[in-house]
């Protein structure tokens, strides 16, 4: 990003950088929404599948429910990280 900014600022008349920055901001704001939306798809499916299977396991073996729940939370944490990275990218694109 910074490299592109430097390149463009050297190539283009300095008076027009404001317009360029505005265009970049608009593009970033638009892509921020896509970034988060796309990042949420996979983890959404994954967490749904994971929790569904865990409930199935708990219903089959209620005596193992504690262990299944612990493992489920760990699995959710790992899966959720992907969506959260998407959210961070969203914040970075939108506000940075």
């Amino acid at each position: 990003m910074e490299a592109i900014a430097r390149l463009t600022s050297e190539l283009i008349d300095p008076n027009s950088t404001d317009v360029l920055a505005a265009g970049k901001n608009a593009a970033a704001a638009a892509s921020a929404g896509y970034a988060y939306g796309l990042a949420a798809i996979g983890p959404g499916i994954g967490i749904g599948y994971l929790v569904g299977k865990s409930v199935e396991a708990m219903a089959r073996q209620p005596e193992a429910a504690g262990m299944v729940r612990t493992t489920m939370f760990l699995g959710i944490a790992f899966t959720e990280a992907l969506a959260l990275i998407g959210f961070v990218v969203f914040i970075l694109l939108k506000f940075a």
Partner: peptide, 8 residues
């Protein structure tokens, strides 16, 4: 990032 992004 997990902790930070969840809370933010």
């Amino acid at each position: 990032v997990r902790l930070f992004a969840n809370m933010m």
